[in-house]
Design a binder for these strands. Structure first.
Lengths: 142, 142
DNA sequence: TTGGTTTTGATAGTCATTTTCAATAAAACA
DNA sequence: TGTTTTATTGAAAATGACTATCAAAACCAA
């Protein structure tokens, strides 16, 4: 799992002509050791406590690279700090979100995906990805 | 429609003990005359061209009030600017979002809605609302 | 109109993020 | 291996969106 992610970054670096550096290796290790989503500042503090000579700017730069490489994703909440979450291979972006207990059920529906493609075509739009969130009350909470 | 929105704000102002001011009236008029979503800066420019003596800080403050009153909603894209969109009763939340120029096209598809209902039923889920965002490149940017 | 309170505009301040740039380190080359 | 080339780094300055400050102006009840 972690090796696969490291390979994704190695391949990305290769394809972009990026160099392999100690800083990037360390930041990637630490990012991969986290769960859920983490703010740049939080990650920087972790990095700093493990390797004090790595600068904040490098953490910012490197996280953007991870996002570009497709192994992290920027998340915007309403507190002005950018956070990053892991991109999980094969994950679906279709969720039933319970607004009471915050539980999330992931689903998949081919017909919906097909209709999305149709709609995009009709607008000359080229799809990269999508997110469908249905909010409401789950079976336990209603 | 517009009158209804104005009433929402008037009621909100009343309940909060806020005063009715020329600036808020003008900003509300201009906000209601826009479509889709608009950044604070964009709205400020519109306001300034109509009434040059209204300051930027007031536009920021007033838009936050609109959001609090429930007639606007903050949107975060990835360009660091906060945008506001109209809260429409019974509105649709299905969008094609261009990741390059940030343009948004709203669409509606009954079949998708129907399928969502089916999926929700299957999980014993009671839908309150939903959001479907398709990210990619619009016709102009691809 | 007056008096108390809210709102405003200008501006200074804040804070996350980005840019700059000289120093350093990685890859390419000899 | 040493040398050259070029990317990367850290520190600090710059940027840019947004917020706080505060004296002046506007609002509104009496």
């Amino acid at each position: 799992m972690i090796l696969a992610k490291k390979k994704i970054f190695t391949d990305f670096a290769l394809s972009k002509g990026l160099r392999s550096t100690r800083q990037r290796d360390i930041i990637l290790d630490i990012f991969l050791s986290t769960h859920q989503h983490i703010s740049v500042e939080e990650l920087y503090l972790k990095v700093k406590s493990s390797t004090p000579d790595i600068g904040q700017a490098t953490v910012y730069r490197t996280l953007k690279l991870f996002a570009e490489a497709g192994l992290a994703r920027e998340i915007l909440l309403h507190d002005g700090q950018t956070r990053y979450e892991h991109v999980v291979a094969g994950e679906h972006h279709d969720h039933l979100v319970c607004t009471k207990c915050n539980s999330i059920v992931e689903f998949e529906n081919e017909t919906i995906e097909m209709l999305q493609n149709e709609i995009a075509d009709r607008h000359g739009f080229q799809i990269r990805n999508h997110k469908l969130e249905i909010y409401g009350l789950c079976a336990n909470c209603r």
